[in-house]
Design a binder for these strands. Structure first.
Lengths: 168, 168
DNA sequence: TTGGAATGTCAACAAGGCTGACATAAATTG
DNA sequence: CAATTTATGTCAGCCTTGTTGACATTCCAA
């Protein structure tokens, strides 16, 4: 069973051979390194890491989001997230407001300084992604998104699709 | 400059809007979690982590590879890699042989037990990737690969393409 | 023979995951 | 109202995996 491209033996399924799959796996590995390389460099200067980037990204995407919501999206423990949020709040990049509807909740927002860093980070990351998208072309990008969506865990796909299309 | 889809204003470049790029970024983030989820679960049982998986994967792909080569591919320090290799060797999953051509080098191989674990890990990861590939279809997979290749750093692309096509 | 390259090892440290336990405030439920 | 649940924060401690720096060994090559 060197090639388990499904049980059909259909020639149209040659893209499902173990070897093709392995190349897909390594493509993910190497590409993800490129994907994070630029933000990593920027963050290292301030003494931050990827965890800070993730928090900043999703607070920016959903201003006023709660700690619990962030926990679900990031898939880490509250202790781990809290440590990161603590430094971001102490450094004046994130503002935490007591919820109005439910006063147990904390609504999180980026401050001006936080928005500045977010812009710097996402600009670097977007530039690389945009260059890659432009090189690959629109059809490739559509395929890229389709494969990645199929690779997500179900609950992650929920967090992704919730913001997939921007309502005008 | 809310939409910086290139400076052309061309409608055919709508896939390069900041919003489309942001979705691509989040797709990478969520998909990578799915990508590593299954191996992570398996590794956790043995007390290993992703670093062990990476070492095992690339030793399996290139039996007899040297430590230096592995360092270049994995992009970590030798101290970090050495710690992982040490545990794998001590646990009998990896065999380290003094190089014949250059006796300073160490050629790394998986033992039988190492190959068993490699199979278990890659089967889990491949199953998910294969399912995603099958759902998305061959054209999408081609696009997926094209975008990821364009996203890699130059030297990483070298390591990727070196083994991109399998010579028969 | 000497310099440098490849490798290994020791020590120390930090980020960022984790678990478990506990505190507090607020909402919800009986 | 009392009890429980929920949301959050915090302390302590552990693990993996990354980092630097220092130093030893081996051995190829000039």
């Amino acid at each position: 069973m060197a090639k388990s491209a499904g049980s059909t033996g259909n020639e149209t399924l040659l893209f499902l051979t173990d070897d093709q799959i392995r190349k897909g796996i390594e493509a993910m590995f190497f590409a993800y390194r490129g994907f994070t390389a630029d933000p990593d460099r920027i963050l290292a200067v301030q003494g931050y890491g990827r965890a800070h980037h993730r928090a900043i990204h999703f607070i920016n995407r959903s201003p006023g989001t709660t700690v619990n919501n962030l926990l679900a999206i990031l898939g880490v423990t509250k202790q781990s997230l809290n440590r990161v949020l603590r430094t971001l709040i102490d450094d004046g990049l994130v503002r935490s407001e007591v919820g109005t509807r439910d006063r147990r909740e904390r609504n999180l927002y980026l401050t001006e300084a936080g928005a500045d860093l977010e812009r710097e980070l996402s600009t670097a990351q977007r530039d690389r992604m945009r260059t890659a998208f432009r090189q690959a072309g629109p059809e490739a990008v559509a395929g890229f998104r389709r494969v990645l969506e199929a690779m997500m865990d179900g609950d992650m796909r929920r967090h992704y699709t919730r913001f997939k299309e921007t309502e005008p």
